[in-house]
Design a protein around this nucleic acid. Structure first.
Lengths: 205, 205
DNA sequence: GTGCTAATGTGGACGCTGTCTACATGGCTA
DNA sequence: TAGCCATGTAGACAGCGTCCACATTAGCAC
C-alpha cells in the first residue's frame, strides 16, 4: 500500500524525499479532483509528516500547485511526443499534415484521459513570471517543430507560418477545454469524436 | 458606498433581496479574483447578514457559484449580441462571414476585458446536469444562429454546416482561454491582437 | 572522532472557509 | 388576531493556509 517514496515509513525525523512525496500526493489529488483540491495539509498527511514541513520545500500552496502543474505539463508533452514518435517521420507535405493531426489528437487524448491533470497543467493563479512569448514549455516547442515541418516540407508557404502556433494551439486547446471542463463535457462519445475530427481537420486538412 | 441592494442597511431582520445581494457579492469577487475566490461567508458578510443565512437561498457553495456563473454567461452573451446588433444585418455571404468574425471577436473581447467573469462562466465543478448537447446556454444559441446564416446566405454549403459550432467555438474559446488563463497570458498587446486576428481569420476567412 | 551550523521537521496558534443543528424573528395568510 | 412557515441567527466542528518558536539531525570543519 505504501510506496517507497510515499509516506515516511521508517518514521525517521527526516523524510529524505519530502518534496517529491508532496508533489506525488498533489498529482494524485489533482488527477482525481482537479487543481482546486490540491492542498498542503492533505499532501503532508499523505507523506506522513507534519503540516508545516511543507514550508521547507514550498513557499506556499501556490508554489506546490506550480510544481504539480509542471509535472502535468511534462506528462502531456510526453504523450504528444510519444504519439509523434509512434507515427514516425512521415516525409512530404502530406506527412507533415499527418504529424500535425497526430499531435493535435494526442493533445485532446490526454485531456480526455486525464482531465484533472489537463486542468492542473494550465492552472496558473494570477502571477506573471515574465516568461517570454515562448514558454520553456515543452509542448510549445513540440508544436513549433511540427509547424516548421509544414514549411520545410512545402505543405504551407513560409509567409503563412508566423502565428500558426496560435491557430493550431487555440483549436485543440479550445475543444479539449470545452469537452472536459466546458459546456461540451459529457457529450455522447460518437458526437464527441466527430467534434474532435471536425476541429482537427479544420486546422490541418 | 452602499448600494440599495448591497448590504442590509436598515438592519431589518429580513434582508428582502438576499439572494440577489449574495450573487452580486459573488460577481464582484469573481470579477476581481476569479471563481475560486467566491465564498459564502464573504458574500454574507458583504450583505450584512449572518453566514448561515445563505443556506436559505443556496444549497451549498457550489450552488452560489453556479448562480454567479450563470450571470457571467448572460453578460458574455449580452456583449456578443450587442456587438452583432451594432454590426447590423450585413446581408450576403460576405456579411455572414463578417458577422461570424464579429461574434468571435466579441467573445475574445469579453474574456480579455473581464477575465474573472470569463473564467467563472465556465467554472463548472464536476457534476453533470444532463443538459443536452445544446445547453440552454444563450451563447450557444447565438453561435448556432450566426452559423445558420452562413448556410442561408450561401457562404458555405449545407453539408459543411453540421459540427461547425465545434470548430468556431473551440477556436475562439481556445485563444480566449490561452490569452487569459493559459500560457499566452500577458502576451504583448500587439502580438496578442495579431494572434486573435490569425485565429478569427482561420475560422472565418 | 568531536562539535558547530544549517537544513529539515514539529507543535501550537490564528483566522479563514464550508456546513451542520438548534433556535429566533416576523411577513403573510386564514 | 393567531399561527405557520420562510427567513435569518447563534454556536459549533473540521479542514484549510500560514505564522511563530522550538526540536532534531545531516553534513562538514576541525
Amino acid at each position: 500500500m505504501s510506496t517507497s517514496i510515499g509516506e515516511n515509513t521508517g518514521k525517521r525525523y527526516h523524510h529524505g524525499h519530502l518534496r517529491e512525496a508532496l508533489v506525488q500526493a498533489g498529482l494524485a489529488t489533482a488527477r482525481a479532483e482537479g487543481p482546486g483540491a490540491v492542498a498542503l495539509r492533505a499532501a503532508t498527511r499523505a507523506a506522513g509528516v507534519s503540516p508545516n514541513a511543507a514550508y521547507r520545500h514550498f513557499a506556499d500552496r501556490d508554489d506546490l500547485l506550480q510544481a504539480v502543474a509542471a509535472c502535468c505539463q511534462e506528462r502531456m508533452a510526453a504523450l504528444v511526443q510519444t504519439r509523434l514518435d509512434e507515427a514516425g517521420p512521415l516525409p512530404g507535405p502530406e506527412g507533415a499534415w499527418q504529424r500535425l493531426r497526430t499531435a493535435g489528437r494526442a493533445y485532446v487524448e490526454f485531456a480526455l484521459a486525464e482531465p484533472g491533470w489537463f486542468a492542473t497543467g494550465f492552472a496558473i493563479p494570477l502571477d506573471m513570471p515574465p516568461d517570454g512569448p515562448t514558454d520553456d514549455f515543452d509542448l510549445f516547442a513540440i508544436l513549433v517543430k511540427v509547424l516548421d515541418e509544414l514549411v520545410s516540407s512545402g505543405a504551407i508557404a513560409p509567409e503563412a507560418r508566423p502565428g500558426a502556433e496560435y491557430v493550431a494551439w487555440a483549436a485543440v486547446h479550445g475543444i479539449a477545454t470545452l469537452l472536459t471542463e466546458g459546456s461540451l463535457r459529457n457529450l455522447p462519445p460518437t458526437e464527441r469524436d466527430a467534434a474532435i475530427d471536425r476541429v482537427i481537420n479544420a486546422v490541418a486538412f
